[in-house]
Design a protein around this nucleic acid. Sequence first.
DNA 1: TCTTTTGCCTACCAAGTGTTAGACTAACAC
DNA 2: GTGTTAGTCTAACACTTGGTAGGCAAAAGA
Lengths: 196, 196
Amino acid sequence: MTDARVTQTSEQIRRTALDLFATDGYDSTSIRDIAAAVGIRGASFYHHFRSKEEILWNLTERALGQLAESWQRAKAELSGDEPLEALRAFVRTGVVFHAEQRTEAALINSRLNRLSDEHYAGAVALRGDYERELADIVAACVATGRHAVPDVRVTVYAILQMTAAIATWYDPEGPTTLDELTSIYEELAVKMVAPA
Amino acid sequence: MTDARVTQTSEQIRRTALDLFATDGYDSTSIRDIAAAVGIRGASFYHHFRSKEEILWNLTERALGQLAESWQRAKAELSGDEPLEALRAFVRTGVVFHAEQRTEAALINSRLNRLSDEHYAGAVALRGDYERELADIVAACVATGRHAVPDVRVTVYAILQMTAAIATWYDPEGPTTLDELTSIYEELAVKMVAPA
DNA sequence: TCTTTTGCCTACCAAGTGTTAGACTAACAC
DNA sequence: GTGTTAGTCTAACACTTGGTAGGCAAAAGA
């Protein structure tokens, strides 16, 4: 058994654990809960993962990777270097991720501190990379002179977190479609960097 | 022992529990953890509270009450009925609350779902009242014709949640003072309702 | 003074926790 | 066929969980 191993069962465990962690929280989800939902016994879980923390990290790393990757893809498709377009694209991918991958988002937006020290540091670093992307964009917007912001750092947090919160309330069956949601958020973000 | 009872020890238990819930989470804080931090044994906790859930609800209700109350106070001091001033005041009190009462904020911004069904419903109702206050303000802004917003409901969530998130990152020792923070957020919120 | 209440204690309970040991079966490699 | 591996199982370990029973000392009320 290696870490990278991906079998049918281990993948099913991952999916199930992700769901349960997102719904009930990491602490109140037991190995036996996960195993039962997959149709095996608790002990068999340990054939696929070394510990409960390992699967948490495994899922967290994946989720952070997906978020970063979706932004990198969008970034690559960006033509020209108009920073406002980058801002729009960044917000768009953020909204889509948090609305579509709500369980993954719930994981990375909440208790990272259940991870071991190294893994926690790793997660914080990955999240920091992502945050820095937005900080650079906002700074570039301001640098054009055509936009202004009361404080770059705080504005970045505000944009990041109003986006992240989508995962906690968005309902695909609700009154707002994903398309509407992305354009609403794009507009809000653009307004936030509007000249004073 | 009644619910409303407030003694020295029970107050100390409340404070300690609030801290531990905010730091470690409700699930991973045991009655014995709380008791030990207060200097009593686990069993003595039950002299002051009927159950673990009771103290969670007790703290949650207080925190929601404090938030609502601080807004009601600010609202009462509002002169004139310029809705933009109300928006500024609402954001201001929200920022101050989430920056100063970070532990209380952490409690109400996370797992309300550990509450019993009735208490959960109560908490959601209280939060709903608070949210509706902002919704009314934003709607009033739009109604003047001098402001516009892509979508009232979503904008309300965005403002509410960028504010709530302050509790997770704000550091009083950090580079931004509370005064600066409030004016940054006021400005951001005002921009968000700027005419399109 | 006697009685009640307050506030804490020790000791316990039943259930659940993450995790390990060791055995078994089925499939695959040679 | 033989050896190895994957994947599961039962059983257990040591410990923690929320909560209870009942007792004991000090204070308060009569």
